[in-house]
Design a binder for these strands. Structure first.
Lengths: 157, 157
DNA sequence: CACCTTATCAAGAACAATTCCTATTTAAGT
DNA sequence: ACTTAAATAGGAATTGTTCTTGATAAGGTG
């Protein structure tokens, strides 16, 4: 239901469809997420949103993020013990977390593939969601490290 | 390296290989994990372990779990905002979390399959780990629900 | 428009899971 | 036995998040 809504309606309509109001705070939080596509944490959203709504509280940001996820407008992304992050990309995708710089990026699902193709899911189990996280090193960080080790090699000569 | 170790050595040797000692506390924690294959939380391990080592502290259990994971003897499993769980199954596998009863079970990787087959991972990214979680309803809970709705149907006749 | 009802919000307290700190105990290596 | 480093118990501290409360605002109704 919510998934359909996003293709057809504005976020306002989606929220109204859930019997809720699109308040200034909710809009500001949503707009920050749509602007920042780097999976910000609640606190990061909070500081950004303060630019628009100067005296919004952190609790309200959490509330807004919760209602937005409940309405299906954003997805919540968790990783190990770190703080939750929020993501307005509603297409099916996995996440990649760079261990050195901490950046998070989206990895799209390949066409006509399903996670069940890779893991043995007993068929009497009903899957409603899946969350897939990869960890490793992003190209930027790999490059940095290479430069460093080159420098070391030059020095040791 | 740690992965190899588990096939060749006892946990003691693996720990020694990391320059650490196999203490009573560590062994007790490890034994609980090997016994309880249902992905216990730190607190659950703590209460079980107290049977063997009556005055072990929760902090020590956390420490032991950390060293065991560092040595590659157990894996840490996180799910949404819930507490971390620990798993001595070192084979590659995903996890299934039942939304109704909370049970966690292992889903093995299919032979000759890799997660990269399903998600588009740019090749200049190096993957070191992945964590895959499915959510849904386990067969037991599905059966229970069916019985309930049958009962309802009978009543309404 | 006045009134009622409910949703929403800010602020701070409370909470759960985990980590940190410190003094004490234990074990290994001389 | 002596020295040194590792490991532990216990409690305090931290982090991220949720809960509570009273105030505010916004729709809907007569």
């Amino acid at each position: 239901m919510a998934t359909l809504a996003q293709h057809q309606h504005s976020p306002d309509d989606t929220i109204h469809g859930h019997g809720l109001r699109m308040t200034g705070q909710r809009r500001a939080v949503y707009d920050v997420l749509m602007g920042e596509r780097n999976h910000p944490t609640a606190v990061e959203v909070f500081t950004k949103v303060r630019g628009q709504v100067p005296n919004i509280s952190l609790a309200t940001v959490y509330n807004c993020l919760e209602t937005l996820t409940d309405c299906g407008l954003v997805k919540i992304v968790t990783h190990e013990r770190g703080p939750s992050r929020y993501c307005p990309n509603l297409e099916e995708h996995a996440h990649f977390f760079c261990d050195s710089c901490g950046e998070v990026s989206d990895l799209p699902l390949r066409a006509r593939k399903r996670p069940q193709d890779v893991w043995e899911v007993p068929e009497n189990i009903t899957i409603s969601h899946h969350q897939v996280a990869f960890r490793g090193e992003c190209p930027k960080c790999a490059k940095k490290k290479n430069l460093k080790s080159e420098a070391r090699n030059l020095k040791s000569k």
